[in-house]
Design a binder for these strands. Sequence first.
DNA 1: ATATCATATGAGTAAGCGCTCATATGTGCC
DNA 2: GGCACATATGAGCGCTTACTCATATGATAT
Lengths: 109, 109
Amino acid sequence: MDRGIEKLARVFKVLGDYNRLGIVMVISKASRTVTDIINTTGMSQTLVSFHLRALRKAKIVTTRREGPFIYYSLVNPSLMDIIDELSHAISNSDPDKENVPETVSSRGW
Amino acid sequence: MDRGIEKLARVFKVLGDYNRLGIVMVISKASRTVTDIINTTGMSQTLVSFHLRALRKAKIVTTRREGPFIYYSLVNPSLMDIIDELSHAISNSDPDKENVPETVSSRGW
DNA sequence: ATATCATATGAGTAAGCGCTCATATGTGCC
DNA sequence: GGCACATATGAGCGCTTACTCATATGATAT
């Protein structure tokens, strides 16, 4: 069992969830409060907290407390670039959708 | 539900398995026979086939038949670069291992 | 101290996932 | 055709995962 690959696979797995990926995108530009994430994504408080725990455990996000608020941000901001690259890579290589592929980072988040 | 993100999450999820990630790495340099993959990874034939199905369905790999052999290769070879980038990104950003982090692509595969 | 807002946690559940076993399909050779 | 090799497939099973509910913790203000 290669430890490096195992760890890498774990990061992929954590990112391999629609809601979690959404959270990562929300906090990718700037650090965000949990309430921010709740409002932007529309998920329930508990669900957001649940996924944030997974992202914390995988060391993908960090927290900074500021009064009653907790700000979440990416441990490594370049992660978002990698996500974007992957997004491009997959939209280039499957032609079974006819509309122009929307880049992930082109949304309002 | 954003379709682009959903699809991206699905690719992440498929890559988020130790065995599958191993297969991707095996075939990343050059296309490989199923038997090659079996021998290189040490997995059982059924298990390799099982994971190859998932990788096919996610359009991460393609096949080319040559006689009785089926060669598997990455649909988009740049995927391996992205995997490597992510590998570096995570090994840079957690200092709780003291030994020099081994790059994924530095193994013999 | 109590109330309120912000966030986290533990238990429970249903669905999904990884794996194995047995078997099927496909290809080339005799 | 029949055999050997290469690969795929369907069913079944246990473990993990995503989610919700209820509740707990932490911070601030009154």
